[in-house]
Design a protein around this nucleic acid. Structure first.
Lengths: 201, 201
DNA sequence: TGACGGGGATGACAGGTGTCACGGGGAGGT
DNA sequence: ACCTCCCCGTGACACCTGTCATCCCCGTCA
């Protein structure tokens, strides 16, 4: 019997996945949480062996939660199950210590197999995403560029961004100009969108 | 026995919801589709009585799919089940003939109740969203403003948008300026983001 | 020690952007 | 007929933005 923890901020999806996985005779959902920062304690208390983690969660995202599980509970394995198959996510998830990465587009019956493979020590990674992740390579953005791009996501003017990060307007423009060049965009909001699509933020 | 159709583009979520609802003794999932434009024919072929529709779907979105069901199969009721509880969505869904609107944040056990209420002719609408929808009122955007905002979502320059819609650059700037004023934004990309958040696009 | 890259800053400049005033046309009410 | 609203366009203007050149400081690494 494989003991599972489910982490997803959408209660309906969480409950539905639990119903789906409980149908398997060798799987048992022993814990459910809706926030990333509750994963480690819930996994410890419930004695979970495999954690299914969504990426978009309040408190702590699924990738950082996988890293926390890796650090605090070395014997527990993590499987990222997320909506957005952004290439950068795969790389970061594996580097964070996750054992698997599947998107929510995959057929339902494959999920249980993925869980079993992860539990037995294998790695499960969506083949298409793995290829894309290799082609794109790691994020070319520097720390500042990434930070400023996240602030540019909502279309704020440069002056607003500069005030938020306590920098000169010119410096913000310079960093964003570099980010625009690296993403192949022509405006900062387009650059921010591209960077997010690739999982660079 | 209530006969259900599930429409969600994420196969994993769709299958999980099916597993969850099949646990109820009086519910039966008789059809599953991953595209909005397959809803009507699948509902007709399977003899479904209630359709659970996600909004974000390829082919046809869930709101338009609900309208199609209303038109083609008057006896069949629709229940929108979606991730984003944007106020404008609720209004548009009800206007399109949907009988209910719930977000994927709601507890799993409430979904079956919502289905039963919709099947019996009642309306089920998330209370918080209903209130927000009334406060915000309908979209103040004109047709052109809405169209141009959708093109501005990705941060394209005005010249690109003008070329895409075959309009003068000045005209595009004027419409977008009006949209910026109506959304309370200061840039077109911020206006586009705000409009999308409110379900005006 | 010197080279190198990231971060921070300034100044200047061309071009893009948001705003306003003003014009015209057409559809829908009263 | 008149008004109103939406749509389309032009021109002008102040301002914002993206780019480039040129500095500086600091940590790293050969």
């Amino acid at each position: 019997m494989i003991r599972l923890l489910l982490a997803d901020d959408q209660a309906l999806v969480r409950g539905a996945l639990a119903a789906l996985l409980d149908l398997e005779s060798d799987l048992e959902v022993v814990a459910q949480v809706g926030r990333g920062d509750e994963v480690v304690t819930a996994a410890r208390d419930s004695g979970a062996e495999v954690c299914l983690l969504d990426i978009e969660m309040p408190g702590l995202n699924g990738i950082d939660a996988a890293a926390a599980v890796r650090r605090e509970l070395p014997g527990v394995r993590s499987l990222i199950v997320t909506t957005f198959g952004r290439p950068g996510y795969v790389r970061r998830a594996i580097e964070a210590g996750a054992s698997g990465f599947v998107v929510k587009d995959t057929p339902a019956r494959q999920l249980a197999d993925a869980v079993r493979r992860v539990h037995s020590g294998l790695r499960v990674i969506d083949p298409d995403l793995a290829a894309e992740s290799l082609i794109d390579g790691p994020s070319p953005l520097t720390g500042r560029e990434r930070e400023l791009l996240t602030h540019a996501l909502d279309g704020s003017p440069v002056a607003t961004i500069a005030a938020r990060v306590h920098l000169s307007e010119g410096t913000v423009r310079n960093h964003l100009s570099a980010a625009i060049g690296k993403t192949g965009a022509t405006t900062r909001s387009e650059a921010a969108r591209i960077a997010q699509e690739r999982g660079w933020l």
